[in-house]
């Protein structure tokens, strides 16, 4: 069974003369432990696609299934629960809450899922320590570097143990060193934790960690390639 199944998915904005087809009849399957990189020029519909997979945007046609659940059949409340427990989001601009510390930002999904603040903070501490941020627990986002912010964002995405991570341009706002660190983390998420990662990006370096590369243009898949994951992965021992 696939973690995510996308069947003939389309998204059309507007109507009549102003109608724009952002995603046009796309079908994809995301396997467990996969790292799927979706690449394409700006305006090709990549972000619209990941937004639909992330249960944040309704499809005009076709369907998205996450663990067999058709998103179109779920109510708003069920979609929120699915995003909270099954999906993890990593954003280009990190999107951390400015008034919360690194530890609190990481704890938010746990508290939203019903954990006590104390327990959530404990789990968040563990998650941040794993990502090398044990010394930055009480720092506000403004006091963190770009790479550190993205690692907090990754910790927040992983803290509820989701099976599918959706990353939108995760290295775009980072310098080369931080970008590499984030790439290694994404690789580790898939290889050591057996989660699936879907990345939307322009960053060609990400092909090094991708298992599948989807080339996207004008809302359509124009080519599917095997990524260079096996050549560069530092987690060979964990490969499924």
């Amino acid at each position: 069974m696939f973690v995510a199944e996308i069947e003939h998915l389309s998204k059309i904005y507007g109507s009549g003369n102003t109608q724009v087809t952002a995603v046009n009849d796309v079908s994809l399957n995301v396997k467990k432990g996969d790292i799927m990189l979706i690449m394409g020029p700006s305006g090709s519909g990549k972000t619209t696609l990941i937004t639909m997979i992330g249960a944040l945007l309704k499809a005009s046609k076709g369907k998205v299934k996450i663990h067999g659940k058709v998103l179109g059949n779920l109510h708003e409340q069920e979609l929120a629960q699915l995003r909270l427990k099954e999906l993890g989001f990593i954003f280009q601009s990190f999107n951390l809450l400015a008034s919360l510390t690194a530890q609190e930002n990481t704890a938010v999904p746990l508290i939203a899922a019903g954990k006590s603040k104390k327990e959530a903070m404990m789990i968040a501490t563990g998650a941040l320590q794993k990502l090398g941020l044990g010394g930055r627990l009480h720092n506000l986002p403004r006091d963190l570097s770009g790479g550190e912010k993205q690692r907090v964002s990754i910790a927040r995405a992983l803290v509820n143990n989701p099976t599918l991570i959706l990353a939108d341009e995760p290295t775009a706002n980072l310098d080369s060193t931080s970008g590499h660190e984030v790439m290694k983390l994404l690789c580790s998420i898939a290889c050591t934790e057996n989660r699936s990662v879907v990345i939307v990006s322009h960053d060609m370096r990400l092909q090094e960690i991708a298992k599948t590369v989807i080339w996207f243009e004008d809302g359509q898949v124009i080519r599917t390639e095997k990524g260079q994951h096996n050549k560069h992965c530092e987690h060979h021992n964990h490969h499924a």
Partner: peptide, 15 residues
């Protein structure tokens, strides 16, 4: 935007 982020990660309207 922050409220949008919270909504995106699954925080409910009620919360």
């Amino acid at each position: 935007r922050e409220y949008g982020v919270l909504k995106a990660i699954g925080v409910t309207h009620r919360q």
